[in-house]
Write a protein that binds this DNA or RNA. Structure first.
Lengths: 127, 127
DNA sequence: CTAAAACTTGACATGCATGTCAGGGACAAG
DNA sequence: CTTGTCCCTGACATGCATGTCAAGTTTTAG
């Protein structure tokens, strides 16, 4: 799969895909002529990256997370594993708090919607 | 309450508070000398703004939302109200989908944590 | 009244993710 | 082989929310 296909299948711009690779979030194999080649597994991976980005995590941190697993398996160094664990935990609680804020925001939105809805009901001319 | 106090109570920098005012998210009264004065109601308001920002809404949109209610009451123009309603709904579903992505992301993190935890258990030297 | 602390405006700088454009290769289909 | 489409790199530009610095004014406490 080349970059155009991956872009089409994920809805992520080619620019961004190259950027993610550049930031170490995504790796590719290259054709002899230098063109990027992706495999199926990259589709969900890109979506995962988007999810992390939506969480407000910067690419540096995401890279750390995505590589954390590999590191943890490949080089079973106790210190590294522990450090990795701490990072993961910290990020998890960060995500949780962002979720909380989002829920709060959505709640505020719901209140506005309620008022607005009442108004529209009162003035059916609004169609 | 002056800007330093509000900043301390909300944890938001003075720079940002001025920026929010500049973007129409926050209004202030001024002392004769020109210094900003806030009242109690601004504390929750700032927190609400932060929540919306965390949701990824740009200040322009937040201003629209926060003023939407007032507009809807003051100038009960049907078209405006309807438009406002559409905007609100769209943003609500946007926030919901971001929340979903975050939950997914947290899930992915939990898997990494599980693997990591298993590893630490296997190599108790990690302390 | 005076000095320190807090505030004001304005400008410039930064980080991040993205868009966009230009000049030049890669490759598949006729 | 040629042409049209896809891809490559690199550079410059943008939007947004913030940080930071400077020079000057206001407020407050001693």
């Amino acid at each position: 799969m080349r970059i155009g296909d991956l872009s089409a299948r994920t809805g992520v711009s080619q620019r961004s895909l190259r950027y993610y690779e550049n930031q170490g979030l995504l790796s590719t194999t290259r054709s002899p002529g230098g063109q990027r080649h992706y495999d199926e597994a990259d589709v969900p991976r890109v979506q995962e990256i988007r999810a992390f980005l939506a969480a407000g995590l910067p690419t540096r941190v995401i890279a750390g997370l995505l590589n954390g697993l590999a590191v943890c398996r490949a080089a079973p160094d106790a210190d590294e594993a522990l450090h990795s664990w701490e990072t993961l935990s910290r990020e998890r609680s960060r995500i949780t708090s962002v979720i909380d804020e989002l829920v709060t925001a959505r709640h505020a939105l719901d209140e506005l919607l309620a008022v607005n809805h009442a108004f529209l009901k009162e003035h059916p001319t609004a169609r």
